[in-house]
Structures are given as C-alpha cells and as structure tokens.
C-alpha cells in the first residue's frame, strides 16, 4: 500500500523523474518559502482531486471524464486561491498567476487520469499525497538552493521574517543574482535531475 505513496516521492517524482509540471517549478522556486507555499497548494489540490475523482470513478462517463476532471480540479484551485488571498496575502501576491495555473498543471490532471480514475479511494489519496510531497520536495530543494545562492538568505517571508543568513553578510551584499533569474532555475533543475539519475543508476547496478 505504501509503495504507492513513496513511489510518487522518489521513483516517480513528478518533477525530477517524470519531468512534468516544470513551469511552476521553474517560476516559483526563487525562494524556499514561495516553494513551500506552492507545494502546499499542489498537495491540497492533488489529494482532493484524486479523492473526488476516485470516489466517483464509477459514475463518471468515459466520454466526459476530462471536462469533469477539469471542473473538479479548478474548483479546488479556486478554493486555494481565495483562501490564500484572504489569509496569506503576501504569499498569494508572490505566487501570483501560478496558483490559478495549477488548474492546467499536468501533474494533477495526469494523476487524476492515470491513477485516481482507475484505483480505489485509499490508494488514490496516497498517490495524491505522495506525488504532491514529491513535487513539494523537489521545488523546495530548488527554492532553497536558489534563495541561498541568489539572495543570501533562507526561508525569508515577504513582509515578515527576514530569513536565516546562511552564508554571512558578504554574501548578502553580493549574492549570485543569476541563481534567482530564470537561467539559474534551469541550471539547478539540471543538476537535480542529473543527480537523481545517477543515484538511480547506481542503485540498480
């Protein structure tokens, strides 16, 4: 049973292995806190959409499954969007358009279509949680690396906590800006994907 859960985190990690959902990953992973916020939103939407899709899989007509998936997903995304705007306005401003864009995130539609529609509720929830956490871990690691190198802080919260000054004052004054810009995102994700493949290859060898 728990194989389903861990598969989403390591072996079938949506970002680092399956390479899906890369757009929000690259765009939002400029700081660790943003990444966590995005991750939490995705975990929520993924788990609940899997739950609903799997519970109703027997009554959803085959021809209508995609529109219904989209309705379900976009409902949860809108809920997340409203709640974030109301109670976490800073985070909501930072994530901007990438929260509404979760609707078209292929991780979520992919899991609904590829897993939840064919599996019982319990498994579907575990799969949602697993893939969600896998996504969050990947984006959080990226956010951490990019924020520390590109800004000199870690876990800084907009309009709140200043962040841990991991690398000292000199680094705060002259950070490696490049890491926060889009090319930095590609560079980090390339190293992470490479690393993942390397360990995978060594383990199976």
């Amino acid at each position: 049973m728990f194989k389903t859960f861990f598969e989403g985190i390591v072996k079938n990690n949506p970002v680092l292995v399956l390479a899906i959902g890369l757009c929000p990953t690259l765009a939002v992973s400029t700081s660790a806190f943003n990444a966590l916020g995005m991750g939490a939103a995705v975990i929520f939407v993924l788990t609940f959409s899997n739950l609903i899709v799997s519970s109703f899989r027997k009554v959803i007509p085959d021809s209508l499954r995609i529109p219904i998936f989209i309705i379900v997903i976009s409902t949860f995304v809108t809920i997340v969007d409203y709640v974030m705007k109301a109670y976490l306005p800073g985070l909501s401003k930072n994530l901007g358009v990438f929260v509404p864009l979760i609707v078209v995130n292929c991780i979520i539609l992919g899991r609904a279509e590829g897993f939840a529609y064919k599996n019982p509720v319990g498994k579907a929830i575990l799969d949602g949680l697993g893939s969600g956490i896998g996504f969050t871990l990947a984006i959080f690691i990226m956010g951490t690396i990019r924020e520390i190198l590109g800004q000199g802080t870690w876990m800084s919260i907009p309009g709140g906590f200043e962040g841990f000054k991991v690398l000292g004052q000199g680094f705060l004054n002259y950070p490696v800006l490049f890491m926060i810009l889009p090319p930095g995102g590609f560079l980090v994700i390339a190293f992470l994907m490479g690393g993942m493949r390397y360990f995978e290859a060594r383990r199976s060898a």
């Binding site: 959803i60 309705i71 409902t75 809920i79 709640v83 109301a86």
Partner: peptide
C-alpha cells in the same frame, strides 16, 4: 445530467467559499 450535477455542486461549493473569504480579502 452528470455534467450538470458536477457543475452545480462545484459552483455551490465555490459560492460558499467566496462568501466566507471575500470580506476578509
């Protein structure tokens, strides 16, 4: 019928959430 029900449930749910969060926003 299925699509109608789905859409109705979804919009009802969203209406409730909107009602709760919009004053706060």
């Amino acid at each position: 019928f299925v699509l109608l029900i789905t859409a109705m449930v979804a919009s009802a749910l969203l209406a409730v959430v909107y009602e709760k969060t919009s004053p706060e926003i």
